[in-house]
């Protein structure tokens, strides 16, 4: 199990609780997923590859994926007009639990009680953005010394 630790004097305190491989440069059709992570949306049995994007204001879920998650979403807000990299779209903010999944023998998953923007016509990939998701998550990217060694470390704050 590989985790990151703070060092304070001679003491070490765990900085992360889980870690996993991440994917770089996957072409999802609507653009390249520069950093993509394996996650579980709601309590779906299957997992999803999502773009991890600190530059995105909100996490975004759209199209078919949103339809599968209806039972796991919280109540929606009124419609919002949001400017995205694919243009301006109407969407609604909703609460959703999203799990970042740790690889076997690399600590434990984290569950984020998050908020996502649901856009039915969204042409892009599932996005894990800053507001409502990354803003309270501790994470670090280790690109590794060779391809396919990329690791994302994650944990709770404090």
């Amino acid at each position: 199990m590989a985790q990151l630790f703070f060092q304070t004097g001679r003491d070490f305190v765990a900085w992360s609780s889980g870690a996993a491989r991440y994917i770089t440069g996957h072409n999802s059709g609507s653009g390249k997923l520069v950093v993509a992570v394996n996650c579980r949306l709601g309590n779906l049995e299957a997992t999803d590859i999502a773009l991890c994007d600190t530059g995105a204001e909100w996490s975004v879920i759209g199209g078919d994926t949103a339809g599968l998650l209806e039972e796991y979403f919280g109540p929606p807000t009124g419609s919002l007009s949001m400017l995205t990299r694919h243009g301006t779209y109407e969407g609604k903010l909703r609460n959703l639990d999203v799990h970042l999944l740790a690889d076997p023998d690399m600590g434990t998953d984290v569950r984020v009680a998050s908020t996502v923007l649901v856009i039915q016509e969204w042409p892009g990939p599932t996005v894990l953005g800053y507001r409502g998701f990354l803003e309270r998550l501790r994470f670090a990217l280790d690109p590794g010394v060779a391809p396919d060694q990329e690791i994302i470390y994650f944990g709770t704050v404090g």
């Binding site: 609460n95 690889d103 569950r111 998550l137």
Partner: peptide, 28 residues
């Protein structure tokens, strides 16, 4: 109240196990 819920800061909780699969083979 709906806005209060969705604009609340997210809460992050460590779970008790690892459920990620074999991403390496899937990536390959």
């Amino acid at each position: 109240a709906v806005w209060s819920q969705v604009l609340a800061e997210p809460v992050v909780i460590s779970e008790h196990g690892a459920t990620g699969g074999d991403l390496g083979n899937n990536t390959a």
